[in-house]
C-alpha cells in the first residue's frame, strides 16, 4: 500500500523532490506507531468485554501494555537527543510556533479560501500538541494505575478516569491522522521515503522554506537551496 509503481513519479522527476522527513524522524514515527498500536490492541484486550474474553491472559497483556506505553516517552526522548535527533527537534519547534496564518487557517476551516501554510498547517500543529499532551497524561496516569501503592485512592480512581478519556480522545485523533494520510498517498509515502514533490510542497506548504533534496548526513547544513522568499505574506504560486 505504501509502495507505488515506479511510474507514479513520472510527473515529478527526481530533481523535483524535496526532503520532508529525515530518516531519524521516519524511524521515530514508525517505532512510535508500532508501540502505539501495541498499546491500543492490548488496551482493547484489557477493556472491551468480547475481546478481553477472547484474548484472556490478563497478566501478560497488562505487562505488554504497560511496557509498550512506557517505551513511547523513552523512545521519544532517546531519539530526539543529540545530532541524530535534530531534524525532529527542528520540526517540533516548527509545530510549536503559531503565526497569524495559523489562526486564519483555523478560522477558515471548512471554507474554501486558501491560507498559505509553512511546513505544517495549523491542524497538524494542533494535533501534534494534543498528542504530546496526551502522551504526558497517559504516562503519568498509567504509572499511578500500575504502581498504585503509594498513591491515595482518589488519585487512582481519578487516574483511571483521565487515562480512559485521554486514550479515547487520542484514538480519535490518531484515526483522523491516519485518514488524512491515506487520503494523501504522497504525504504518506513521504513518511516512508522521506521525500515529497516540490509541487506538493507548493500546494500544501507554500511558506515552507524548502530544504534541498536529502542527501546523507547533510541535514544540519543545508546547501543554499532555492530560496522561497521570506516567511511573511507570500501568496502561493498557483
Amino acid at each position: 500500500m505504501l509502495r507505488s509503481p515506479e511510474g507514479a513519479h513520472a510527473s515529478t522527476p527526481r530533481g523535483d523532490l524535496v526532503s520532508r522527513f529525515h530518516l531519524s524522524e521516519r524511524l521515530l514515527h514508525w517505532v512510535i506507531a508500532l508501540l502505539f498500536g501495541i498499546c491500543m490492541v492490548t488496551a482493547a484486550a484489557l477493556y472491551f468485554d468480547p475481546f478481553a474474553a477472547l484474548v484472556g491472559r490478563r497478566e501478560t497483556v497488562k505487562a505488554l501494555h504497560v511496557y509498550a506505553g512506557l517505551a513511547i516517552p523513552a523512545v521519544l526522548v532517546a531519539m530526539s537527543a543529540g545530532r541524530w535527533g535534530r531534524p525532529f527537534r527542528d520540526d517540533a519547534a516548527r509545530l510549536n510556533r503559531w503565526t497569524h496564518h495559523d489562526r486564519r487557517w483555523l478560522r477558515r476551516l471548512g471554507r474554501d479560501s486558501f491560507v498559505p501554510q509553512g511546513k505544517f498547517n495549523a491542524g497538524q500543529k494542533l494535533n501534534a500538541a494534543f498528542t504530546a499532551g496526551a502522551i504526558v497524561l497517559l504516562v503519568a496516569t498509567g504509572v499511578v494505575m500500575r504502581w498504585f501503592d503509594p498513591f491515595p485512592l482518589w488519585m487512582r480512581t481519578g487516574s483511571t478516569f483521565v487515562h480512559d478519556w485521554t486514550a479515547f480522545a487520542l484514538l480519535f485523533t490518531i484515526a483522523g491522522h491516519m485518514r488524512y494520510a491515506f487520503r494523501d498517498p504522497d504525504a504518506l509515502r513521504s513518511m516512508v521515503r522521506g521525500t515529497i514533490s516540490r509541487e506538493w510542497a507548493a500546494r500544501h506548504a507554500a511558506l515552507w522554506h524548502l530544504p534541498p533534496l536529502e542527501h546523507r548526513g547533510t541535514h544540519g547544513h543545508p546547501s543554499p537551496g532555492p530560496a522561497r522568499g521570506d516567511d511573511s505574506d507570500v501568496e502561493p504560486s498557483r
Partner: peptide, 24 residues
C-alpha cells in the same frame, strides 16, 4: 510566532489535573 503548541500542552495538563480530581 507564539508558542501555542506549548500552551496547548500545558492546558491539557491542567485539564488532566482537573479530571483527576473531579472526573470520577
Amino acid at each position: 510566532g507564539t508558542p501555542v503548541g506549548r500552551r496547548v500542552i500545558l492546558s491539557m495538563l491542567g485539564l488532566g489535573a482537573l479530571g483527576l480530581v473531579a472526573g470520577p
